[in-house]
Nucleic acid binder design. Structure first.
Lengths: 259, 259
DNA sequence: GTAATAGTGTCTGTCAGACAGTATGTG
DNA sequence: CACATACTGTCTGACAGACACTATTAC
């Protein structure tokens, strides 16, 4: 019943390959990454000072133009955007949304060049990310910025919108996934993990309920060794790590910590 | 502290406007819509038979090339893709994900032209959609296809992947949102709404629990009139409608119907 | 021992789901 | 009346959160 014809398709592809693509009206396509990390006791996002036009001088998310010659997928481009700035790809990276049209702040076009941007959400332990050193004139070009300082900071393009949505998604996913563990190292204690949840959510959690649900979820397995307290005193905590994916269950312990 | 310079930016934009964009290696950008509807007792998705290369003759989602000259945003393009096929925009339309790279079926590129596609998820009452009549040769070019027939149907490009993800998102959102109401008309009975939930989830729900949660959620208000049973017998049900957004609460009754 | 932090046990209010019962229509 | 469907009340098991308790370390 299908009228599909492979020979006709091949002939058409030969034609297409010879076509001059510039006759299409194509938008520019960029990829931007909102990379989060816990720096000390603060949830931060990675920002880069733009060193070229347009919007030169404003702080922006790490981003690159999507280039099919370099990037097989959009996610490849997102990784490239990060390695350019940090020489490291994050342990968690997820597509957020593709932005087009106007930004919310002032209704201006999101990019004067008419570029569509696919935004990614990343999460990484801060010690895996090495920021480049200061630029020549003493200005730091790459920075971790606490998320609660973003209200007063005007970012390039529609990046304030992107960070806002990324943060909402991050917080939304916390309550039903192991996500915050991605902001910690390979092995971590449950008190550490709870702290990560609390810092991302901006809210205290009950220790007992937290441990019950985390352990019941079956995402963690005990790692060898124990962790002494940094402050010295107190019982050392045992160490855990994310179970190596033995199949599928990506994100489930389904009830909320919250109301 | 910001080194942003508006004059320099304006000068740069003048330059940019004169540039020949064809020197950029740009991907093609398309927008595809997985539009769902309840046809009788079946959840269906709208498919269109491709009438041009590439992949001519295969069934595909409704889609268009994104054209900044016609579409201010990607969502505009999604609406255009639907109005081209159905002369109607759906009451619910949400960005799903942007697809790039290879399709899962065979690892082939998702589109031989190297096109990135932003997919949208739509939901509509079937009576709002008028399909175009048959094409000249008696072949129907636009069709509602039951979702459980999609396993055996090979769609164009990576559209099998897109529909699969769209369906997962649709089902995922059902349990914590009023979404299925978008598949019904302006006023509907609670038994009707429950049926819509059940058809989308593919699962029976408890009447009492369903009513309690739906009504507690505060999303509905009583509409004037009652609805007699189609079959004649039985007590008529009262009618409800979605409360006109008097503020924010988009998607909450938070516990699951399911386990 | 004390202080400090890790980890557990128990109680209680809330709520989803089960199911039986009542209400209101048609013939 | 019987029958069919709409709607409601009540019970129960599960579970999230509160909070008190025990365990294990450093000093």
């Amino acid at each position: 019943m299908s009228t599909f014809n492979q020979a006709a398709e091949n002939a058409w592809m030969d034609e297409f390959a010879k076509m001059d693509r510039s006759r299409f009206r194509l938008p520019l396509m960029s990829v931007d990454v909102a990379l989060f990390s816990l720096i000390g006791e603060t949830l931060c996002v990675l920002l880069v000072k733009r060193d070229r036009q347009p919007q030169m001088g404003l702080w922006a998310l790490a981003g690159v133009m999507f280039d099919p010659a370099k990037d097989k997928t959009l996610e490849d481009a997102a990784r490239r955007a990060l390695t350019v700035k940090t020489h490291e790809t994050p342990p968690y990276l997820e597509q957020l949304k593709t932005f087009s049209g106007d930004r919310s702040k002032d209704g201006e076009p999101r990019d004067p060049r008419i570029a569509v941007s696919t935004a990614y959400l990343g999460l990484s332990p801060s010690d895996r990310i090495v920021l480049p050193s200061k630029t020549g004139d003493g200005e730091v070009g790459t920075r971790w910025v606490p998320v609660d300082q973003l209200k007063e900071l005007e970012l390039a393009f529609d990046h304030n919108d992107i960070v806002r949505e990324a943060l909402a998604r991050l917080r939304g996913k916390v309550s039903y996934s192991m996500l915050p563990a991605r902001a910690l190292g390979d092995a971590f204690s449950l008190p550490h993990l709870q702290k990560a949840y609390e810092l991302i959510l901006g809210e205290k959690l009950d220790k007992s309920a937290f441990r019950k649900k985390i352990l019941e979820s079956g995402f963690l397995e005990e790692a060898p060794g124990r962790l002494a307290q940094a402050s010295g005193a107190g019982r050392p905590s045992s160490l855990w790590r994310i179970k190596q994916a033995e199949g599928a269950p990506i994100a489930t312990f389904r009830r909320t910590f919250l109301a």
